[in-house]
């Protein structure tokens, strides 16, 4: 079991709920992934509309915990207000805090992120900050009261996978006791396995599953990769070396000439 802020979770894979071909496929993908936590959002409801009600009813039927986000917020004020609205609607103080700083890369505005994190932590939220892999920003977020960090490994939806292994290693090394969840940029199950092998506690992904030709199959594949990477991390990986080492014992080798 994975202990995340005092909550025991069966899975180290957190799954987004956006961009699936249909609500039924979303539900099947969530089940196939084995996830315990899905991310959700808040958007404007149309007058007389029931879209939000239908979606929320579907999510509740899946028996998973929700992690609401502040996606699309570009200012501290917007993010803080959205977080408070999410707390009321979803009945959780968990919030995936996003303060976007750049339209093209969806790179977090880390200055606004730290400010918003401080305000929300003081207000009793458990803040899951969507951040870059910058070590100093991570320190500031922890100082602001965050108990978990969610660095990207590449821009949202890019499917590039871990582009800066050194930075990810550095975060893991500096914060051995802080839950670290790679959020954004994972494209393949092997990417998820790679970051789990580095010792990350979990991954959060959405597009790589939702936009796969078969989201349900891909959800299952990512689930296996996350488990494999975690078990490998715990089992002690062999360090790479530049020379060959025979795997078959050389003692007792026959000599024919």
């Amino acid at each position: 079991m994975f202990d995340l802020l005092g909550t025991k979770l069966a899975s180290r894979l957190l799954l987004g709920t956006a961009r699936y071909p249909s609500p039924a496929i979303l539900a099947d993908a969530v089940r196939a992934s084995g996830t315990s936590v899905v991310t959700v959002s808040l958007r404007r409801e149309m007058a007389g509309g029931r879209a939000g009600e239908q979606f929320w009813s579907l999510i509740r039927s899946l028996g998973v915990r929700v992690l609401p986000n502040t996606a699309g917020c570009h200012s501290v004020k917007e993010a803080v207000t959205t977080a408070k609205m999410a707390r009321e609607v979803f009945g959780t103080s968990w919030i995936k805090l996003e303060v976007i700083g750049n339209h093209d890369t969806l790179q977090p505005d880390v200055f606004g992120l730290v400010e918003a994190a401080r305000i929300l932590c003081q207000d009793g939220f458990s803040v899951f900050p969507y951040t870059t892999d910058d070590l100093v920003v991570a320190e500031r977020l922890l100082e602001a009261g965050c108990k978990v960090l969610m660095p990207w490994c590449a821009p949202i939806g890019s499917a590039l996978g871990p582009v800066n292994i050194m930075a990810l290693r550095s975060l893991r090394g500096h914060f051995p006791d802080v839950p670290l969840i790679v959020d954004a940029g994972l494209g393949r199950p092997s990417h998820a396995a790679t970051v789990m092998e580095l010792g990350f506690d979990a991954v959060l992904l959405n597009t790589a599953v939702a936009k796969a030709a078969d989201p349900v199959g891909m959800a299952r594949a990512f689930s296996k990769a996350v488990d494999a990477g975690r078990e490998a991390y715990g089992s002690g990986l062999l360090e790479p070396r530049d020379v060959a080492v025979p795997s078959t014992p050389t003692i007792g080798r026959a000599v024919f000439s």
Partner: peptide, 10 residues
């Protein structure tokens, strides 16, 4: 006034 409701999110 903003009136929001649950929606898919990543």
């Amino acid at each position: 006034i903003e009136i929001l409701s649950p929606m898919q999110g990543g």
